[in-house]
Simulated assay, not measured.
Amino acid sequence: MKDLVQNPTSKNPVYRRRLFWHRIGMALSIAAMALGLFFLLWILGTLLVKGFDGLSFRLFTEVTPAPTSDGGGLMNAIFGSLVMVGLATLVSTPIGILAGIYLAEYGERNKVAQVTRFVTDVMLSAPSIVIGLFVYALYVANVKHYSGYAGSIALSLIAIPVVVRTTDNMLKLVPNSLLEAAFALGAPRWKVATMVRLRAVKAGVVTGVLLAVARISGETAPLLFTALNNQFFSADMNAPMANLPYVIFQFAMSPYDNWRALAWGGALLVTFSVLALNILSRTVFSQKAPQ
């Protein structure tokens, strides 16, 4: 018995077999992780090497150049992306938060809430190009021209489900004892939902908004059918508007060296922006998550 306790592998074949398969599983898991990290680092390394060559002060101060001209930048595309993403965030944030509150407060036995939650899950998994085609058929085809407004609508439809699900999930983490205490003090349900429950998880809700912004910042497919592009600087939201994803898509496939250099610079800019938003959201969430 003493030998069995000190060295179970020598006396217990079941233990040895389980230990063998455990080591096989761990080895396969580590190999899969290493393979994924290898390709991820390869992609990031290529992006850093080629992207830094395209970064310059002119990237932020000049508009997109002609194919064979020297110089040029992405000022119009950066401005267009900021405007459309900003407008989409302003539209999707209140809608997503209010819908998330409704699902958390009335979504247990409410048929409408159940349907809303199902539609939200479908929109989360829907390809972004489908949303772009939907906005094209609903808006662009009727007004007969591309516009920044159409691009913002498409981006809003992508961001809303992310905010809804994040808000819904975060509100469910609030302890029932906190809600019961608020009700015991005579607070109405709407005030408990907004002043107590939502305030308790405000960091998580902000995280959902930041993740939604990171999601829509690099979307290209919806903008192909909505905002399209504009080679010149334009602040008119009712006209075609330049944006970084489309310019990167167009310039990366061109045979011109200056366009490809700008595409790499724009790709690095978008990657760093999304990375910064993800780091910010995770930092805020980890520091201020409800206990």
Rank of each mutant, 00 (worst) to 15 (best):
K2E: 14
D3C: 07
L4K: 15
L4S: 11
V5P: 04
P8I: 09
S10L: 15
V14P: 06
R18M: 15
R23L: 11
M26H: 11
M26A: 13
L28P: 06
A31P: 03
A34L: 13
L40K: 04
L40Y: 11
W42V: 08
T46L: 12
V49N: 08
K50W: 11
D53F: 08
G54N: 04
S56C: 09
L59W: 02
V63P: 00
T64C: 00
T64W: 07
P65W: 02
G71H: 10
F79M: 09
G80N: 04
G80W: 06
V83H: 08
A88N: 09
V91H: 11
S92C: 10
I95M: 15
I101Q: 15
Y102S: 15
A104H: 13
E105T: 14
G107E: 13
K111N: 09
A113G: 15
Q114P: 06
R117F: 09
T120N: 14
D121K: 07
V122I: 12
M123N: 03
M123I: 04
S125H: 01
P127M: 00
P127T: 01
I131M: 01
I131V: 12
V135T: 02
Y136T: 04
Y136D: 03
A141F: 14
H145V: 12
Y146K: 06
G148H: 08
A150W: 05
A154R: 00
A154W: 05
L155E: 03
I158L: 09
I158V: 07
A159M: 06
V162Q: 05
T166Y: 04
D168S: 09
D168K: 07
N169F: 03
N169V: 12
V174H: 10
S177W: 12
A184N: 13
L185F: 08
G186N: 11
A193R: 13
A193I: 11
T194S: 14
M195V: 09
R197Y: 08
L198T: 14
L198N: 08
R199I: 04
V201H: 05
V201P: 03
K202D: 07
G204K: 07
G204L: 03
T207N: 05
V213M: 13
R215Y: 01
S217G: 02
G218M: 00
P222G: 02
L224Y: 02
F225I: 02
T226W: 09
S234W: 12
D236L: 15
D236N: 15
A239E: 15
A239K: 15
M241K: 02
A242P: 01
A242G: 08
L244P: 01
V247G: 00
V247K: 04
I248H: 01
I248G: 00
F249R: 01
A252S: 15
Y256L: 09
W259I: 01
R260M: 01
R260A: 04
A263N: 02
G265K: 07
L269G: 02
F272W: 10
S273Q: 11
V274N: 02
L275N: 02
L275R: 05
L275Y: 04
N278P: 03
R282M: 05
T283D: 04
V284H: 00
P290E: 03
